[in-house]
């Protein structure tokens, strides 16, 4: 009652409350906006092409003139999945080992330096990765493996592996640092060495956080567009390590500027598929973070 009285007495309080509430709700509005727009603009093409031929069609020929254009995005889906898996396989072990070192063993100064280096890696714009990849990695792969063009899935995997390192390391280090010192003391007192203690007690204790770090890396890898576009060759082939390939993200980006009609709508449908992937990854991330908090 008193509260209400105050509100009527001071309309400014009510107004201010309202302003803050609206600001808080804007995030929710944005998520709804994005979801609704992607669904509305993504569904028509799927309806016209058919869900199965769209998702599992192996041929993407959106601008075919002589024959009927074909809109199968299986090559993009598989490329995104393979590319992400490849980046995880390359990036996670390196990131994980470095995280344990940075969180547990590194001397104070080295730790600070490595953490700055990792932040820097996170801050470098993706086009810069793409540029260096284009001019160093792509020719390097061409020479090393003796293939006609180095712009390939492999080049994209290497670039993505580097780009997901900061997410993996930052989140893992935080999780490892949160492991109570008591666990480590107990292990040392039983005669385990420091290294044994970190890998057999600290890492299992931080496993939810480390899993979250990997999932976050998956999200970053599957969502990256520009760097991948610059090194992957960008042809709608089924994925192969040395093939020129197109990811879900780059499929959207590469044709958007000159597309129209059903082709344009199909691009929105690709974005919708990508969005579904991201939402699944977010759900997994939340699952791990929540479990981490409970533990």
């Amino acid at each position: 009652m008193k509260q209400n009285k105050k509100h009527t007495a001071k309309p400014i309080e009510a107004i201010v409350h309202g302003v803050f509430l609206v600001a808080g709700l804007i995030t929710v509005g944005c998520v709804l906006l994005i979801t609704v727009y992607l669904i509305i603009s993504g569904l028509p093409a799927i309806k016209e092409i058919g869900l199965i031929p769209f998702l599992f069609g192996k041929v993407w020929a959106s601008t075919a003139k002589t024959t009927e254009p074909s809109f199968g995005i299986l090559p993009f889906i598989l490329t995104s999945v393979y590319g992400t898996c490849g980046a995880i396989v390359l990036g996670v072990p390196v990131g994980f080992m470095a995280s344990v070192y940075i969180a547990k063993l590194a001397p104070k100064k080295l730790k600070a330096v490595m953490q700055s280096a990792v932040s820097l890696l996170a801050g470098i714009p993706s086009v810069v990765y793409g540029l260096v990849g284009m001019l160093v990695l792509v020719p390097g792969i061409r020479k090393l493996f003796n293939v006609p063009d180095g712009a390939s899935l492999l080049a994209a995997i290497v670039v993505l592996a580097i780009m997901i390192l900061p997410s993996i390391i930052k989140v893992s280090v935080t999780a490892l640092e949160a492991v109570p010192k008591e666990y480590e003391d107990a292990s040392l007192a039983l005669g385990a060495t420091e290294v044994e203690t970190h890998f057999k007690v600290s890492v299992p204790a931080a496993r939810s956080g480390i899993a979250a770090a990997v999932v976050l890396g998956v999200g970053r890898a599957i969502g990256e567009a520009m760097a991948v576009m610059m090194v992957s060759g960008n042809a709608a082939n089924m994925p192969g390590l040395f093939e020129s390939v197109r990811f879900l993200t780059t499929a959207v980006a590469s044709e958007m500027s000159y597309s129209g009609g059903l082709q344009r709508q199909a691009l929105f449908s690709i974005a919708l598929v990508l969005f579904v992937f991201i939402m699944l990854i977010n759900a997994a991330l939340n699952f791990f973070l929540k479990r981490d908090k409970e533990a």
Binding site: Y37, A271, L274, F275
Partner: peptide
Amino acid sequence: SIIEYAAETLSGIPSIIYGLVGMLF
């Protein structure tokens, strides 16, 4: 929790999707 979940979701969406929705909207 709805607002926080929305914020988390936003931070996980890749920029190409922002670009697309930004263009449409």
